[in-house]
Design a binder for these strands. Sequence first.
DNA 1: GTCTATACTCTGATAGAC
DNA 2: GTCTATCAGAGTATAGAC
Lengths: 206, 206
Amino acid sequence: MPTSPRPRSRIQQRNRELILDAALEVFSLHGFRGATLDQIAEVAGLSKPNLLYYFGSKEVVHQALLTGLLDTWLDPLRAMNPAGEPMREIMGYVRRKLDLARDFPRESRLFANEVLQGAPRMRDAIEGDLRSLVHDKAAVLSRWMDEGRIARVDPVHLIFSIWALTQHYADFDVQVRAVLGPGHDPFAEAERFLETLYARLLTPVP
Amino acid sequence: MPTSPRPRSRIQQRNRELILDAALEVFSLHGFRGATLDQIAEVAGLSKPNLLYYFGSKEVVHQALLTGLLDTWLDPLRAMNPAGEPMREIMGYVRRKLDLARDFPRESRLFANEVLQGAPRMRDAIEGDLRSLVHDKAAVLSRWMDEGRIARVDPVHLIFSIWALTQHYADFDVQVRAVLGPGHDPFAEAERFLETLYARLLTPVP
DNA sequence: GTCTATACTCTGATAGAC
DNA sequence: GTCTATCAGAGTATAGAC
């Protein structure tokens, strides 16, 4: 009765959201094995059996979080327009990806945990959707390079670099803030730095 | 390698190394909470009580791994010579850091796991040694920029970028290989890409 | 030094009252 | 739908024989 795409009551909807939010908090900090249902239930403000009434098992909660996460994560890349102005499109992608890291650090860490541990629950998605989208967009970047509109560089590693540089500020937030010290806005500084970096890397030289 | 003040027999030394190697394997894949002594003992080929004879508790094993890890991790930055030729020194740092990521991916992932989880067991080291070394080297970079020997850019974020880009290839290895597909050497390609990137970012323009 | 056996706690999941 | 009570298994750690 409780499963399937049926309409849910307001309370049900509300509790599912409470649980998913709590689970995101805990899974993103401890990984799948390190997280416990006790912690999640406590953060959600529910009893453990009640949590398990909504989601049949720990696995189900985790899977519910991963489903859709990859899409959210790839949307900024998907939005890169092949018909647009190259420099503007790439900078837009960098900015959107950095915004995601700033506004959804827990999602970033959940993803990082998953990949760090060998992506046991995301392998298919990574080898499928993610891989083909990257190659699709790499082809676009390659074309722009052929046309001399941006400087030549390995397009796939260019995409890797954007992932690495933006997600670093979410995943290693603790380290970044410890080094910078108080009175800094890591993401604002990162935006300026990345703008400079990609301008110098990609501005074509005649 | 610093050893404890008490001399140990060859067998003791050997077993300690077996345990630490096994622990590195397991902790780097599952994080502290996700790892179990059963797994570590099995990988090490010892019984669990025997493991606990050498290291009093799970915490002690983990701490033994972290001790010294930060030093290893920072050595390449430490080796950047203020009296050297700027471009050569920076490229050398990038290359040494990438070599570390390639040759010691488990250490990289152990570190990533720790920072991802808020660095509960490394906070002091990060706010102390790491922070002061970064500011020390950032001052060197800043001086080089003042002298016009490399292009101007935020020196601390420049160091962040080297960390992010090199460690990405170790920590997200699964994803990198899934996207590249077979027949690629991620680290060799990364080295060429990073050489290009930092040359274009830092070569001074008159 | 190493093992078997075991104490005790934590964790995921279920039963059943309300 | 939510709770209390509880189970079975996994997990850390110790006792004690050899």
